[in-house]
């Protein structure tokens, strides 16, 4: 018991020193990270709450390499043309209902579908995935990292000419 007190005291001192250092460094940052973030509004939080499965970058890399899934880019067509995931097809969220109704996009109901948009703070990919699921495409997942995370991981980007 006697040996435990100095151990806990030093452990508390380490925690205190770490807390002071992290607060000081964060205060000095050009853009300090707020102590309380707005994570409940984050697109991944909303996706999970809606019961949608999220795809990680490693699994996406495998899916792109194997071509086993249909990858749908939910951004506006101009953004898609400027650069998109290899093998992806453009299906802007705003035009999804129209394009699916006109059969311009040959999608099977049980097909594995991955949607994405620009970054982890955009929501077109989420909205498209939810729309597809509502219309019967139940095997739809969201890649929430978006094109930005794909690029950061060194992934190749296709450009439409």
């Amino acid at each position: 018991m006697k040996a435990l007190f100095p151990l806990l005291l030093r452990a508390a001192a380490i925690l205190l020193f770490a807390a002071v250092s992290c607060a000081a460094l964060n205060w000095l940052r050009r853009e300090p990270l707020p102590l309380r973030g707005e994570w409940s509004k984050h697109v991944e939080h909303r996706a999970l709450k809606a019961g949608l499965n999220l795809l990680g970058i490693s699994t996406l890399q495998q899916a792109v390499a194997s071509g086993s899934s249909r990858i749908l880019d939910a951004r506006p067509t101009a953004d898609f043309r400027a650069g998109h995931l290899p093998g992806a097809q453009s299906l802007p969220f705003e035009l999804a209902a129209e394009l699916l109704a006109s059969m311009q996009l040959d999608l099977q109901r049980d097909q594995s579908i991955i949607t994405y948009c620009a970054r982890n703070d955009c929501d077109e990919g989420l909205e498209l995935a939810l729309f597809l699921r509502r219309t019967g495409y139940t095997n739809t997942v969201l890649y929430a990292g978006g094109l930005a995370e794909w690029r950061a991981a060194g992934g190749k980007v296709e450009v439409e000419r």
Binding site: A19, C22, A23, N26, L33, R36, G37, S40
Partner: peptide, 10 residues
């Protein structure tokens, strides 16, 4: 949610 940033900083 309220703890995520604090933990990430600490």
């Amino acid at each position: 949610d309220g703890l995520i940033n604090t933990v990430a900083l600490l």
